[in-house]
């Protein structure tokens, strides 16, 4: 038998198919989000099942998470992404005590108990300034790829100071910095530092090691280093960080 975890995030829908007894991942898929979430999710699940050669009838349970979770009628249960990320990280890296998840449009700091249960959490879900969206805006404004940001930040001499708490106004700041002949490398480093500083601020003094970094932004070069610098502690990037939420949802479906 199999179980499915669906993470209906703000930017992408992620699906993970696992075998119930072994908890092995036998299928995965990612699709862009859209208006017809239920249909998009359903179609993605069908694709994942077909590629894995698994019939829908062999799927015991589907758990949905993410902002769009309540819109998915294919789910048997919905669980918040906080719980799912904690579960997913704990499965990959038992012993993790703090999870930092930075997605496209939100960011979270979760503190876990020894056994992986969530002790408490802090969420930034009303301001894009501490999220992947900020990096997208910057990359777009600087005509760069997200994948190049790490290399650019590494060449920075003195990260620019970004003061805005709003991504919209921060975009204006970037224009201003370019006009003041600050290098693109310094600007990128400044943005990454600003995001990292906001995460560190959200984390406060609640951070307990080991710390795992997950979410789509963990894939962007330079962000791990920026976070480590802001927090003054080492981080481990989760394997397949974009899928952690879906993994946690699938594991909860199987449990």
């Amino acid at each position: 038998m199999f179980c499915i975890g669906v993470d209906a995030g703000s930017r992408a829908i992620k699906v993970l198919l696992i075998e119930v007894d072994s908890l092995a991942i036998v299928g995965r898929g990612v699709a862009g989000q859209g208006v017809a979430q239920a249909e998009l999710a359903s179609r993605l699940v069908d694709e994942v099942l077909e590629r894995a050669g698994v019939a829908l009838a062999d799927v015991r349970r589907v758990v949905a998470t993410g902002y769009g979770r309540d819109a998915l009628d294919l789910a048997h249960t919905t669980v918040t992404e906080i719980t799912c990320h904690a579960r997913g990280v704990h499965h990959q890296l038992p012993g993790t005590r703090t999870v930092i998840d930075i997605g496209g449009q939100d960011s979270k700091v979760l503190r876990l108990e020894q056994g992986g249960a969530v002790r408490d959490f802090a969420v930034n879900d009303r301001c894009a300034a501490g999220t992947g969206r900020f990096l997208e805006v910057v990359a777009s404004r600087l005509d760069a790829d997200l994948g190049d940001l790490g290399r650019m930040a590494a060449r920075a001499r003195r990260p620019s100071a970004i003061s805005s708490t709003c991504v919209v106004f921060a975009e204006s700041e970037i224009v201003g910095l370019l006009a003041a002949h600050e290098s693109v490398e310094d600007i990128v480093a400044g943005v990454q530092s600003a995001i990292a500083a906001r995460i560190a601020s959200m984390a406060g003094r609640r951070v307990v090691e080991p710390i795992v970094f997950t979410g789509g932004v963990a894939l962007i070069p330079g962000m791990k280093e920026a976070l480590e610098s802001a927090m003054g502690r080492p981080l481990t990037v989760a394997g397949d960080p974009q899928m952690t939420g879906a993994l946690g949802a699938a594991l909860l479906a199987a449990s």
């Binding site: 902002y67 918040t80 906080i82 719980t83 904690a86 969530v118 959490f121 879900d125």
Partner: peptide, 10 residues
């Protein structure tokens, strides 16, 4: 709402 749900889940 998500925050509330997450706390209770935890």
């Amino acid at each position: 709402r998500t925050r509330v749900q997450a706390l209770i889940e935890a």
